[in-house]
Design a protein around this nucleic acid. Structure first.
Length: 208
DNA sequence: TTGTAGATAGTCT
DNA sequence: GACTATCTACAAT
């Protein structure tokens, strides 16, 4: 449709046990949202894995289980959206089996389709590199909010798709996660994946 | 171009 | 009632 051919990823993709394996395959995939007549598509360029109860940076660390984190304990293939700073909605993909609270946080996308809609949602006037950079902007541009937490990624409202785009292996970089200094040694784990030289990947420091 | 400060609201104890 | 996270804006160089 509209010149973009893509295939929705099936539940089997999300339900594998190894969240790192799933995370390593996500760069270059498409994040699609369809709310009413508004379809927006962004290519995933940056993400972080959260490895269940062992991961201090995860909301589910130590087996904590509350109404908010409940979606993380479900089987993979649904969305987990939480609010941070009272303003930003962060979008996660739940992976793994039921009772294994693993998730992947989408930190950055490259707008592919529906850019005027994204501009309207974010209140921006032109599509610069800040449109899909940073987890708060991702959900804002895609129209995702905490209302969508627990939604299935197998329906036609929100889903992940593959359009055949392949990211060269040498352009997929792994490194420490961002904003998880409080996680102690876990903050050093290379659970962050991003595409090298992509302007929509948040950078610690500008270099030029 | 780089650094720093201020804002926010839902969740858990 | 305390805590948790990121973006935007503004100021200085």
């Amino acid at each position: 449709m509209d010149g973009i051919n893509y295939e929705k990823l099936a539940a089997s993709f999300f339900r594998r046990k190894n969240v790192l394996k799933i995370a390593s395959e996500l760069p270059g995939k498409l994040l699609v949202t369809r709310f009413g007549a508004s379809e927006t598509i962004g290519r995933i360029v940056e993400l972080e894995a959260y490895n269940g109860v062992l991961d201090r940076a995860s909301h589910a660390f130590g087996g904590r289980r509350t109404a908010r984190t409940e979606p993380m304990y479900a089987a993979g293939g649904i969305a987990y959206v939480y609010l941070c700073y009272g303003i930003h909605h962060l979008f996660n993909l739940v992976t793994g089996e039921a009772e294994a609270p693993q998730a992947v946080l989408i930190r950055g996308i490259e707008p592919v389709k529906g850019i005027p809609i994204m501009l309207e949602r974010t209140g921006k006037s032109k599509a610069d590199s800040s449109l899909g950079r940073g987890p708060g902007n991702v959900s804002k541009a895609m129209g995702i909010s905490t209302l969508h937490s627990g939604w299935s990624l197998l329906n036609n409202d929100i889903f992940i798709a593959d359009d055949g785009y392949k990211v060269p292996q040498q352009k997929i970089i792994t490194g420490p996660r961002i904003g998880v200094d409080y996680a102690g040694e876990d903050a050093l784990l290379p659970y962050r994946y991003y595409i090298k030289d992509n302007p929509f990947v948040s950078r610690v420091k500008k270099n030029k």
